[in-house]
Structures are given as C-alpha cells and as structure tokens.
C-alpha cells in the first residue's frame, strides 16, 4: 500500500472513532470548568471582560485618533486567543494521557484534534460576543449618521467561515506536530510558550499592518521587506483578515506623535490570502503525517 493509501486508511480509522472524538471534546470542556454550575457563563465571561477592558482603554482612556479602536483590536485579539490556547493546550494533549495510551488502543491523533476542537468551540462563543459588540457599533453609527463608519460591515463578512476553517487547520496542524514532539522532548511546551509570547508583538493585534508598511522608523527598502515578511506569516494574514472582513477601513495616524494620516485596515492582498490558505492546508496534512509516523513509538519511550 502506498503512503497515500496508508494516509486514507488512517483517516478512515479515525473517522470510525468520531464518537470518541466528540466525547474527548466534551470531556475537555467539562474538565475546564470542573463541572462548575456557571459552566458556559465562564467561557463567555472571559471575552466579555476582555471587550470591556479594551473598550475602556482604547476608546475612553487613551486618546487615540482611531474611531472604535477597541473593535479593531478585539477582532484580532479573539482569534489570537484561539491560537494561543489551541497551541498551548495541545502540547500536553498526548503526554498527559500516557496512562491511557499505554493501555488502550484508539487513534492517538484524536487527542490533539480534540483539544483543537474544544478551543474552536470556545472561539465561536467569543465570536458571538464580538458579533454583539459589532451590531451595537454599526447600529450606533447608523443612528448617528457618523461619516467615518458605514452602517453595514464589508461584504467579505461572508468569507468568515473560510477564515475560521483555515485557522482551525493551522492550529490543528501545529497541535499534531507539537503534541507528538512533546512526548519525546518535554521542553517543547515551554519553548512554545516563549515563542507565542514573542509572536504576540510580531503580528498586528495592537497595531495595524499598514503602520508597519509605512513606518518612518525604517528606511523604505527595509520596511518593504518587513511588510512582505509579515504577509508571508499565515497568522498575520488570518488576524488581519478577521479585522478587514468585519470592520471598515479608515484614516488613522501613521504612528504615535505623527500627524501624517494613512488608510488602515485595508486587509491583505488576495494572492497572500490564498497563499496562507494553502499553507494552512499543508501544515495540517504534514502535521497529520508527522504525528502518524511517530504515534506507535509513544508507548516505547523509556
């Protein structure tokens, strides 16, 4: 049987165990809230509090010349949280279950996939909070006849499911890689925590991609290269796209202390979007293959 045949056989075998996958996801969510009575309310509380704080800081306390800045930050921040928790939870998804893995057969890839899907469910809840926030924002803009904010979101909002799918593939792929590696090298999960901490500043969440493109801190040649490097990072593409699919472009200051205004939230050029989509599919498929090549050695690790 060729490697493609093996791959399909393994996918079929995992599909046979879909009910177990569903139960693993449920268990993940039950454990997270330790069966607390508030349950789902807790998963909503976090994004609600986050939205409130960012609104206070960016729209009420800091005098930034970007209207509804908190909405722009949130539109990237919630997807970022999905990355962060999805990757951090996946690290130990296999190594924490070794007692079980050593005794009972089931497709091992279900473990990292279950943490990914559990985090997806959380993310969808936080998107619900974001939707309420945006409905309020657009409704107020329509009532006020605010010339800076249109009363409807961009038409690309219909591409949101594509975006969620590609992000989930990327997170699932990374989860498969690091959960397998973490069985053999327990340092991996610490390494990921440090890397993600740094990455937060290297992706446009608390700033706009256009501010990197036109920054005066770098010479024009260098900033062009930096801008391209940003666009080649699929995480940047995903975060920027959430923002531009949900919120309008607007004029904003180039940077603190600068009076120059530029257009921000223009989104990413489509070729980069589809390139990132292809990268996400590749990361998922290669992660699946990487994991499956190693999964039979998990229990032999001495």
């Amino acid at each position: 049987m060729g490697s493609a045949g093996t791959f399909l056989a393994e996918v079929r075998e995992a599909w046979r165990y879909r009910e177990l996958l569903n139960n693993l996801v449920d268990r993940e969510l039950q454990v997270r809230y330790k069966n607390s009575i508030l349950g789902v309310i807790w998963s909503l509380a976090n994004p609600l509090v986050r939205a409130l704080i960012l609104w206070l800081v960016f729209d009420k306390i800091l005098p930034l010349k970007v209207s509804n800045y908190s909405a722009y930050v949130l539109a990237s921040f919630f997807p970022w949280t999905y990355f962060l928790t999805g990757i951090l939870d996946a690290g130990e998804s296999v190594s924490r279950q070794m007692a079980l893995v050593k005794k009972v057969y089931f497709p091992r890839e279900l473990l990292p996939l279950a943490t990914t899907i559990a985090n997806l469910r959380h993310f969808l809840l936080s998107l619900g909070v974001l939707a309420l926030y945006l409905i309020g924002l657009y409704a107020f803009a329509a009532l006020d006849n605010d010339p800076r904010t249109p009363s409807l979101p961009p038409a690309t909002i219909f591409l949101l499911p594509v975006l969620v799918l590609m992000q989930t593939l990327l997170i699932g792929g990374i989860a498969l890689y690091i959960s397998a590696l973490n069985v053999f090298f327990e340092d991996v999960k610490f390494l990921m925590a440090v890397l993600l901490d740094l990455l937060f500043y290297a992706v446009p969440i608390i700033y706009f991609l256009e501010q990197v493109h036109y920054t005066t801190a770098l010479s024009p040649g260098v900033r062009g290269i930096v801008h391209h490097l940003f666009l080649l990072n699929p995480i940047t593409v995903i975060l920027v796209s959430y923002r531009s699919f949900l919120l309008p472009a607007q004029r904003a200051p180039l940077g603190p202390g600068s009076d120059a205004e530029i257009w921000v939230n223009l989104g990413v050029p489509w070729p980069y979007f589809w390139l990132a989509f292809a990268v996400c599919i590749f990361v998922f498929l290669s992660g699946y293959a990487f994991f499956n090549r190693r999964k039979w050695r998990f229990v032999e690790r001495q």
């Binding site: 268990r27 039950q30 454990v31 330790k34 069966n35 007692a99 079980l100 050593k102 005794k103 009972v104």
Partner: peptide, 9 residues
Amino acid sequence: GAGFHPDLT
C-alpha cells in the same frame, strides 16, 4: 481506571 479523569464524576 487508567482512563479516569480525577476531576470528573
């Protein structure tokens, strides 16, 4: 009981 999760009932 290897598969039991301590926090679940």
